[in-house]
Design a protein around this nucleic acid. Structure first.
Lengths: 171, 171
DNA sequence: TATTGTTATACTCTATAACTATA
DNA sequence: TATAGTTATAGAGTATAACAATA
């Protein structure tokens, strides 16, 4: 099925640059590979990688509202409602009322949520090690650093040309 | 970075590691940013970035069948049928019969397809330059190189452990 | 009137199976 | 029987609008 090497060559082969030269193609391949490996690492967390991101974000700082989490994760607030519903049903997070603003609900981790976060984090660290296994430690560190820098600068550039709320306001 | 020096709160702040430390999060952010910038660069190509990938792959080597292109791009052959349908309607590609196997259809670029490929490629080069604008040329080159290496090694590792998209326990 | 969260609806994308025509 | 391509259908995921409660 493979290696169709003897094709009739009545026409000149185009011989254009292949997909390897495309930055978007490399990003797509690496991201796809990660999305294939991540689900087994975050098994048990509703919403897969997105649910894990909620656990990380909700545990990283002071109590955050659903809207703040949605904006930080770049998803819609309606999707956040569905996601928190599932995670609350699974017993990983709880909705807590805001002390003064009764519209707001803070998302906090339960004990089970904290355990799921630790387990998923360890499993994801293993996945990362496998993905970067062919790189020297210094190269892996530099790849992480470069990706973070590109993410920051690109998001800043994109936010300047997209008509939407760019405010950052927590709780 | 974080400033966890304040311990005078009624509740202990979780103060766990944030999303910045996650490789998957960085990949997601960069990929998302690219997917937001790419559509304007490949405007006019049906299927967006995927249609552009077909143009690149079909022009890079000898005539390829729909199935070969689908496997190279990692998409289903049915999706490839829909995609080639749209691109053929748009006049960018043509289906040509295989010289000996009458089941196979080769996907070849038309003149309009070649023009669309060139225009999209130039626009995407500009997008790449904007995304990597904050990086030194050597850093940008290294990021590309590292991504290609990770993509290759990870795909090789993933292809060795294909237990299917569902869980390991077949119901 | 604006904002937070929720609910309902519609749309897009993809996965799966079944069908044809060839080999 | 197996393969390349096509077609049809169902499901997941997402976007949009409308709503209720509160500021």
């Amino acid at each position: 099925m493979a290696a169709p090497g003897d094709a009739s060559r009545s026409e000149p082969a185009p011989a254009g640059p292949g997909l390897e030269a495309e930055l978007g193609w490399s990003l797509h391949r690496v991201s796809t590979a990660f999305r294939q490996l991540a689900p087994e690492a975050v098994a048990g967390v509703p919403g897969g990688a997105r649910g894990y991101q909620v656990l990380v974000a909700a545990h990283a700082g002071p109590p955050a509202s659903q809207l703040a989490l949605a904006q930080q994760l770049g998803i819609d607030r309606t999707a956040m409602t569905y996601l928190v519903d599932e995670m609350e049903t699974a017993g990983l997070v709880a909705r807590r009322p805001h002390p003064t603003d009764r519209r707001v609900r803070h998302v906090v981790l339960t004990d089970a949520g904290l355990e799921a976060l630790d387990a998923s984090r360890r499993a994801l660290r293993s996945v990362e090690a496998r993905m970067l296994g062919d790189l020297a430690p210094a190269e892996a560190a530099q790849l992480r650093s470069l990706l973070v820098r590109v993410a920051r600068s690109t998001e800043a550039a994109v936010s300047c040309e997209t008509p939407g709320p760019a405010g950052r306001d927590g709780s």
